[in-house]
Design a protein around this nucleic acid. Structure first.
Length: 478
DNA sequence: GAGGGCGACC
């Protein structure tokens, strides 16, 4: 078209942008847009924002957005969605506030992105506020799907079930979201029952649905069921197993203590195992206490994901435990050389729509004195009922937090103490954490839930822990 | 003649 001398217009550009596959395509087209002086058109702009975000470059999307003098609601939706899709939930929520200040009303698409941001941050209260605003879009399928996901990821299963039940229309995403959500929160049997209802409803499962089903099996240690679904998925649903399915099975086998079978399956995979696959095996070795295989798996993880600080620490702990001090030193040097920094442990808790952050070793929270007092008192009372601080961390501490600070004050314990002094009795304490929970905190929370007669939910980067009455929904496998 | 939103293994 350009060769033949036809000048592209705003319609051409907004269509062509959506078919870009890489940044080089977009940059070329972006130049053309400037050359034609079409950069201020809202359609072109929203297409640009959209494509930058889809390619994982939300900051480029933001520059396009910020150059805008006049915009419309869609451009706002595009930029908010761009950050929400790239897991930059904070930024998405900030932009949403800016949007409201600028006088734009939130529509369905806006609210879906806002919900996704709440989901990312496990902000149940804010998510519920959004829920109130969407009653007028009662039967919007995508919004309802996002709501179900938000409630599941905030550990509020009652609400998730209610929204799901009241949906008049459900698609494969609705079912898959609810199945995975139930499984992640420890309701495996319910998840599998729901899968049966899904089939009865006539909705065809896709490969993500099966990931949820296998995850449910792995979560509950249902070895037979897991094998059945895994082996029959191709025949029954025409779905070829991919890495995620293998991952669930490796987890399931590992949980059942069948590490040999897990390794065998890993070696039989049609696709290459990735860092997540090896981390799955590593997790199984950790729970089974198999240090030899753990060392092997950890090396593989680092090979495939050299930035993974937690695994370096775990490997170094394994070496330290077997007195291989040269290897310990080697790892430390390597971490220094590549510039691997351990992220400090941080926990968040939402109280009265305010987010409170607790960072290990940080004393800036205004209530830190009371929090420490409450925590010390709690530790004392827990010791009274048999709590013994866990000091053998070789395979228990996934992120190496205790190396830096006393485990007495891991961030989730601070958040818990704060929750106990601020949230009314009977209210569930919900905490989100940036690092995996360690073995000591896990024991601590089980006992604290019992002693304080509280439900406590912790969402770490990959697992959900519902502590109640001395038990955890993860069944001590995480 | 054109635009945005939802689910998945560690």
């Amino acid at each position: 078209m350009v060769r033949e001398g036809v000048r592209p217009n705003v319609y051409t550009y907004s269509s062509v942008l959506r078919s870009c596959n890489g940044m080089s395509d977009v940059r070329m087209i972006h130049c053309g847009i400037f050359k034609e002086g079409l950069e201020s058109d809202v359609f072109v702009r929203s297409a640009l924002i959209d494509v930058f975000a889809k390619l994982g470059e939300p900051d480029d999307a933001l520059s396009v957005f910020d150059e805008m003098v006049t915009g419309d609601a869609i451009v706002w939706n595009s930029i908010i969605a761009g950050f929400a899709q790239n897991n930059k939930s904070d930024e998405a929520l900030k932009l949403f506030k800016r949007m409201k200040r600028a006088g734009f009303l939130a529509e369905q698409a806006t609210l879906t992105s806002v919900l996704r941001a709440c989901t990312g941050l496990a902000l149940l209260e804010l998510g519920m506020q959004v829920h109130v605003h969407i009653f007028k879009y009662d039967q919007d399928l995508i919004l309802n799907n996002a709501l179900v996901d938000m409630y599941c990821k905030s550990g509020s299963l009652e609400d998730a079930r209610r929204v799901f039940r009241n949906m008049k229309e459900r698609d494969v995403i609705s079912w898959s979201t609810m199945i995975s959500g139930l499984a992640q929160n420890g309701y495996s049997q319910e998840a599998l029952k729901l899968f049966e209802s899904m089939k009865a409803s006539g909705t065809k499962p896709n490969y993500i649905t099966i990931v949820g089903v296998l995850f449910a099996c792995s979560h509950a240690g249902l070895l037979e069921d897991g094998w059945y679904y895994f082996r029959s998925m191709k025949k029954l649903y025409g779905i070829d197993p991919v890495r995620e399915h293998y991952g669930c099975m490796i987890d399931l086998l590992g949980k059942a203590g069948k590490l040999d079978d897990a390794v065998k399956l890993l070696n039989e995979m049609e696709c290459e195992p990735d860092a997540v696959t090896w981390r799955t095996l590593l997790g199984a070795c950790r729970v089974q206490g198999n240090m030899v295989l753990a060392e092997y798996a950890a090396k593989k993880v680092i090979e495939l994901d050299p930035e993974d600080a937690g695994t370096y620490t775990l490997l170094s702990n394994i070496y330290a435990n077997s007195q291989k001090w040269d290897s310990v030193e080697e790892i430390r040097t390597r971490m220094r050389d590549i510039g691997i920094k351990k992220e400090p442990g941080c926990s968040w808790i939402e109280v009265n729509k305010q987010i409170h952050a607790f960072i290990i070793g940080d004393k800036s929270h205004p209530k830190i004195v009371e929090v420490n007092k409450k925590l010390n008192e709690l530790i004392h009372r827990l010791i009274g009922i048999g709590y013994v601080p866990e000091t053998n961390f070789v395979l228990q501490d996934l992120e190496g937090e205790q190396m830096e600070e006393s485990l007495r004050h891991h961030s989730e314990k601070l958040a818990l103490a704060f929750g106990l002094i601020t949230l009314p009795i009977g209210k569930v304490i919900r905490i989100r954490k940036n690092l995996r929970i360690c073995g000591d905190c896990h024991v601590f929370f089980k006992l604290a839930a019992k002693l304080e007669n509280r439900s406590i939910v912790i969402r770490d980067p990959i697992r959900y822990h519902h502590f109640q009455d001395g038990k955890c929904s993860c069944g001590d496998y995480w």
